[in-house]
């Protein structure tokens, strides 16, 4: 957990996450931020509480005859398996998508030393890890629709502000930005975009069909 987070998720995003209405890629960014931020975690839990209150207040719909017996037949008496909590460099939600920790990420270069790894989510939006070497700039790009960029390690700066570990930048299609990593450390981000990410310089654009973005 990180108490130094300065850029949080919006209430709208947290509500949509609680309601289960976010595309998978955005839900991944939200879940990862919640793993790093107590403040948003508390808000998310109270939003779940609203969901619980709504379900409690519903008039039930009658279950089919024999439903209880059918469910009872599926219960087993085995004691519940203990939960393993593995710690890692990357937050658990991201590790679940990589199938391992930072050393298992299959990076692909996108130019200027920047690397990315696209994570497999449903197509409604796309998620990727970005690796920006210390002091380097993310190739200039724009996007259709919303983009969430969450810093996992290091920090970056763009026209709007500076973003450190746990910080999330919410950008829309108006934004045409060039994040630059701090000189101190390489920057690793988790980013989700609604539309395709479009790089402006010719090298990444040529490479786009091959790297699946």
């Amino acid at each position: 957990m990180n108490s130094e987070v300065r850029h949080h998720l919006s209430e709208e995003l947290l509500t949509a996450y609680a309601a289960g209405a976010l595309p998978e890629a955005f839900a991944l960014v939200v879940a990862t931020h919640l793993s790093m931020c107590d403040e948003c975690r508390a808000m998310a839990e109270s939003l779940d509480g609203i969901g619980g209150t709504l379900i409690e207040g519903l008039d039930g719909a009658a279950m089919d005859a024999g439903a209880l017996e059918a469910v009872m037949a599926r219960l087993d008496d085995a004691p519940a398996a203990p939960i393993r909590v593995d710690r890692g460099v990357l937050p658990a939600p991201v590790r679940a998508y990589i199938g391992g920790d930072l050393d298992a990420v299959k990076w692909k270069p996108v130019g200027m030393g920047v690397k990315q790894a696209v994570l497999k989510t449903s197509d409604s939006a796309s998620a990727r890890l970005l690796y920006i070497p210390a002091g380097a700039a993310m190739p200039e790009h724009s996007h259709r629709g919303m983009e969430l960029t969450l810093v996992l390690q290091g920090a970056f700066e763009d026209d709007s502000d500076r973003f450190g570990p746990g910080d999330v930048e919410i950008a829309d299609d108006e934004v045409d930005h060039t994040p630059v990593a701090d000189v101190g450390a390489d920057c690793i981000c988790l980013a989700a975009t609604e539309g395709r990410l479009r790089f402006k310089s010719w090298i990444p654009r040529l490479a786009q069909p091959f790297i699946g973005i």
Binding site: P23, A31, T121
Partner: peptide, 25 residues
């Protein structure tokens, strides 16, 4: 009730959208 809600919501996500539901650590 809240806990049951979260299970029902997650089940709805894989039912209606076949998306995975990423959960926080």
């Amino acid at each position: 009730a809240t806990w049951v809600f979260t299970i029902a919501r997650n089940r709805r996500i894989d039912l209606l959208r076949r998306d995975r539901r990423p959960e926080p650590e």
